[in-house]
Simulated assay, not measured.
Amino acid sequence: MATTRFTLTRNPFGRLLLTSEDGNIHEGVVPVRAFPIQAPNDGIALVNGDGAEVAWIDRLSDLTPAIRSLIEEELAGREFMPEVSRIESVTSFATPCTWSVVTDRGATSFVLRGEEDIRRVGSNGLLISDSHGIQFLVRDMQALDKHSRRILDRFL
């Protein structure tokens, strides 16, 4: 395990408080993933309220369990990206249309405004943005069932 060059705690208001090795204190730091989809546990910046990076974490696994837990809690509270496991139906193959999907957070539906709101991520992944800006992740198109892949093929 690598040596952590800072300490991380919560202040009485629940905000993260980072104390650097040289004693500088940064209140209200926020963790930001460099590669949230392709490498979610690697490359995390801790930034202050002005958006300036005050610490860099190569890998979450390098941290002590206490610091890792604080960062994971903070990330979970900020990030909302349901992962699509099945596409049940679409109202039309022309956009805008409503998609009914099953995600890791339950069944839902959303409006796809246009084909440009479906972006490729890596070789088999997709990021689908709905009309409200919520992003749905398809981690691996090939892992979806045949019905879901057929629907996706009409939009890609």
Results as ranks from 00 to 15, higher is better:
Val101Tyr: 02
Asp58Val: 05
Glu79Phe: 06
Asn48Met: 08
Gly49Met: 09
Leu126Thr: 07
Gly23Gln: 08
Thr64Tyr: 02
Ile87Glu: 11
Asp104Pro: 12
Gly77Gln: 09
Thr9Phe: 01
Pro65Asp: 14
Glu21Gln: 14
Asn41Tyr: 05
Asp145Gln: 11
Gly43Lys: 03
Glu72Leu: 13
Glu72Ala: 01
Pro65Cys: 09
Leu126Arg: 14
Val32Ile: 13
Phe13Pro: 00
Gly28Met: 11
Phe35Ser: 15
Ala34Thr: 06
Thr103His: 01
Ala2Gly: 10
Gly125Val: 02
Asn24Leu: 09
Gln142His: 13
Ser92Leu: 13
Asn11Ser: 15
Lys146Trp: 08
Leu70Gln: 15
Glu72Trp: 04
His147Asn: 10
Leu70Val: 14
Glu72Asp: 02
Leu17Pro: 02
Glu79Met: 07
Leu63Cys: 11
Thr4Pro: 00
Asp140Tyr: 10
Leu144Ile: 11
Ser100His: 01
Gly23Ser: 06
Leu144Gln: 10
Asp130Tyr: 00
Leu8His: 08
Gly49Glu: 12
Asp50Arg: 14
Ala39Asn: 01
Phe80Cys: 15
Glu72Thr: 00
Leu18Gly: 09
Phe6His: 06
Ala76Leu: 10
Val32Leu: 07
Asp58Glu: 11
Phe35Asp: 13
Arg150Gly: 02
Leu112Trp: 10
Leu152Glu: 12
Glu72Arg: 13
Arg139Asn: 08
Leu60Asn: 02
Thr108Ala: 13
Thr19Cys: 13
Arg139Thr: 06
Asn48His: 06
Asp140Phe: 05
Gly122Lys: 11
Ile44Asn: 11
Leu126Cys: 04
Gln38Ile: 06
Arg105Val: 06
Ser69Phe: 14
Asp140Trp: 05
His147Asp: 11
Thr7His: 02
Leu126Pro: 08
Glu73Val: 03
Val111Ala: 05
Arg139Pro: 01
Pro40Asp: 08
Gly28Gln: 08
Leu18Lys: 04
Thr103Asp: 02
Asn11Val: 06
Thr95Ala: 03
Thr108Pro: 09
Gly23His: 06
Leu17Val: 03
Val101His: 01
Val32Asn: 05
Glu27Gln: 12
Leu70Asn: 13
Leu8Glu: 14
Thr9Ser: 07
Glu74Trp: 06
Glu53Asp: 09
Phe93Ser: 13
Asn11Met: 09
Pro65Trp: 06
Ser20Leu: 08
Pro96Ala: 04
Thr103Asn: 00
Thr108Ile: 03
Asn124Phe: 01
Asn124Ile: 07
Asp62Gly: 15
Gln135Trp: 03
Gly28Glu: 11
Ser123Met: 10
Glu83Ile: 01
Arg139Gln: 07
Gly14Tyr: 00
Ile71His: 08
Asp22Tyr: 00
His132Ala: 12
Ala52Gln: 13
Ser123Cys: 04
Leu16Ser: 04
Thr64Pro: 12
Val32Met: 12
Ser148Leu: 12
Ile25Pro: 07
Leu112Asn: 10
Glu53Asn: 05
Arg113Cys: 01
Pro96Leu: 05
Phe136Lys: 00
Asp153Tyr: 07
Val102Cys: 05
Val90Gly: 09
Ala107Pro: 02
Pro36Ala: 06
Glu116Ser: 15
Arg120Trp: 03
Leu156Ala: 05
Leu144Arg: 13
Glu74His: 03
Ala76Gln: 12
Thr91Ala: 10
